[in-house]
Design a binder for these strands. Structure first.
Ligand SMILES: [Zn+2]
Length: 576
DNA sequence: GTTGCCGGGAG
DNA sequence: CTCCCGGCAAC
């Protein structure tokens, strides 16, 4: 977009900072308002700050308690309506004003010389990765901070760091990760279970926006509004259906968390905790046999059910036990199967855990349906996947594809009958097109040029990964009609339902897909009329008619954008 | 002016 | 890889 339109002007509003809580622990938040005495105001909302300036910080996570004893005054819990504890937690976003000197963060104070209290959530770089941890002790004299981190699936580690090696704010983090973090938190909030690990107190310090290495920052934090959080919570719920998730033991769910009070000494707010690692693990496990990974999917988290009972239409139940792919027609059957084959008869409890080991799938065995891409209405059949494909079809998920080893797609057709498809479309194109390097382009360019790029699984990916191509009207060679010769008789071609993925598959590997696609390969499938539109711009995708994240959520809620949008790539959530 | 997103670059 | 952003085309 236009240069110079980013948020630089927004000044420090939106800057992530850490502010002291009543317990002496720093909590992350976002500057939401800057109050400078009027005589100091500058015309551009840009800084003209003095020591009088007060910064209203909105803490990332909300509590139900006030900052009464905090050094400064004036808290603004937003809403006190009582609902479930967990909700109340979320609703009570904390805001509080601070002066410059009280804040730590870019443009404010540094951690330097500060004393960290036990329980302080910090971020350190461990193994080249930013990791969050909790301070165990901080010896100022020795400049020694003992930080406990729990990375990955290993048990917590205690590391000795110097103060300068610790950060209160996360320096860089993908939305995905922060989502995960949040999810974890929700697990707790949702009170998913009883006790669980001895989670140390957690402080959420989500990612931080200003002043990382890259210059301009799109300011803004995500405001975790209710929606968002609900999504996360739901997501979590859905994850719970996965087998082997092991998360029950991993998700910290200290009782305190649901009460959301961080007024109690070191016990920190019920913030997202280190769930990151835990969650990650959980994901790994849960998807192991599903060729899918959540790691790229922040998009598509949509609000709906998930928690609702499995429902509607022809569906089957598929065992998700590690390598077992048994499907059964009924829930009972699958549960029985699970009980017998996996869990063992011993457990005939009233709260059947079998439920965790199967998932409902569509009868056609297509567990991902692109129809969801456009409407959140129908909920995904598979709870396990729900978080991922609700809005984003699997083919858009790089991870998914990668793990598959090939890119498959709903509309893939493998039709041996006609390996030679007339693919010569009307796409005339511009050789100099920047996209020329994209295979399909080339292919189109020269229909007769048999495009032979077998077995290089890589090539289609790059672009594919990032841009869900509009299925309709192909602006430029749409992959929809892309033909791929996997070197011999078996030609594979796919029609992109709404994307691009090129497949390179040995014919054999193709999973069962219903051939609902006729041999005609025309992108038009879901599109209105003719796929042949004047290629408005040979090399650039036409503007999709649908609003993208940016428009939908606005800059203020950038955190809710899909990853692609955040990266200024083709939106994956609202693909056209 | 705003959006969408490609291409390219940093880490 | 992941993340960010310049810059340009489409609105
Ligand atoms: Zn998007």
């Amino acid at each position: 977009m236009s240069t110079g339109r980013r948020l630089a002007k927004r000044s420090i509003i939106g800057t992530r900072v850490s502010a002291p809580g009543p317990d002496g622990i720093w909590y992350s938040g976002v500057i939401e308002e800057v109050k400078t005495p009027s005589y100091n105001l500058s015309p551009t909302d840009c800084i003209n700050l003095t020591s009088d300036t007060r910064y209203k910080v909105r803490f990332d996570f909300k509590t139900s308690t006030d900052f009464d004893d905090a050094p400064t005054t004036n808290t603004t819990p937003i809403a006190d309506i009582m609902i479930s504890p967990s909700q109340s937690v979320r609703r009570n976003a904390m805001k509080k004003e601070f002066s410059e000197s009280e804040l730590i963060g870019p443009g404010f104070c540094t951690l330097d010389g500060k004393q960290l209290l036990p329980g302080q959530r910090v971020f350190i770089t461990h193994n080249g990765r930013e990791t969050s941890g909790d301070v165990i002790t901080h010896d100022r004299e020795k400049d020694e901070v003992i930080v406990k981190i729990s990375c990955g699936n290993e048990e917590p580690l205690e590391l000795k760091k110097r103060l300068e090696e610790t950060r209160l704010l996360e320096s860089r983090r993908s939305a995905r990760l922060s989502n995960l973090d949040r999810d974890t938190d929700f697990a707790r909030l949702a009170d998913m279970g009883g006790e669980r690990r001895k989670a140390s107190e957690k402080i959420d310090v989500p990612y931080y926006t200003n002043s990382n290495s890259r210059k301009r920052r799109t300011s803004f934090s995500e405001e975790y509004d209710e929606m968002n959080e609900c999504k996360a919570a739901l997501l979590l719920m859905s994850l719970s259906h996965s087998p082997k998730s092991g998360w029950q033991t991993m998700l910290g769910s200290s009782p305190g968390s649901s009460s959301a009070s961080w007024s109690s000494g070191t016990s920190s707010p019920p913030l997202s905790d280190d769930g990151q690692s835990a969650t990650q693990l959980l994901i790994d496990n849960s998807h192991r046999n599903r060729t899918t990974s959540l790691s790229t999917s922040d998009e598509g988290i949509v609000m709906d059910d998930d928690t609702s009972p499995r429902k509607r239409r022809a569906s089957r139940f598929k065992c998700t036990w590690k390598t077992c792919n048994v499907t059964k027609a009924t829930k009972d059957d699958i549960e029985r199967h699970i009980r017998q084959s996996h869990i063992g008869p011993k457990k005939s409890r009233q709260s059947p855990e079998e439920e965790f080991y199967y998932t409902e799938i569509e009868d056609c065995d297509e567990d991902d349906d692109e129809t969801l891409a456009n409407s959140k209405a129908p909920s995904p059949p598979s709870p396990t996947l729900s978080h991922r494909d609700m809005a984003r079809p699997p083919h858009e998920d790089p991870e998914y594809q990668r793990q598959n080893g090939f890119y498959r797609q709903q509309c893939v057709i493998k039709s041996p009958s006609q390996s030679n498809i007339s693919q010569n479309n009307n796409f005339q194109k511009n050789p100099t097109s920047p996209l020329a390097h994209h295979n399909y382009n080339t292919a189109y360019n020269n229909p007769k040029t048999s495009y032979n790029h077998h077995s290089s699984p890589v090539s289609p990916t790059k672009h594919a990964r990032y841009s869900p191509r509009p299925s309709t009207s192909a602006p430029y060679p749409s992959p929809s009609s892309y033909v791929h010769h996997s070197n011999n008789n078996s030609t594979q071609y796919l029609t992109g339902y709404n994307t691009q993925n090129v497949t390179i598959t040995p014919s054999s590997s193709m999973s069962s897909f219903n051939n609902r696609m006729p041999t005609t390969i025309h992108s038009s499938n879901c599109s209105p009329t003719n796929s042949n539109k004047s290629p408005q711009s040979p090399n650039r995708r036409p503007r999709g008619e649908s609003k993208k994240c940016r428009k939908v959520y606005g800059m203020d809620r950038k955190g809710e954008w899909c990853t692609q949008c955040k990266w200024k790539k083709a939106c994956s959530r609202f693909s056209d």
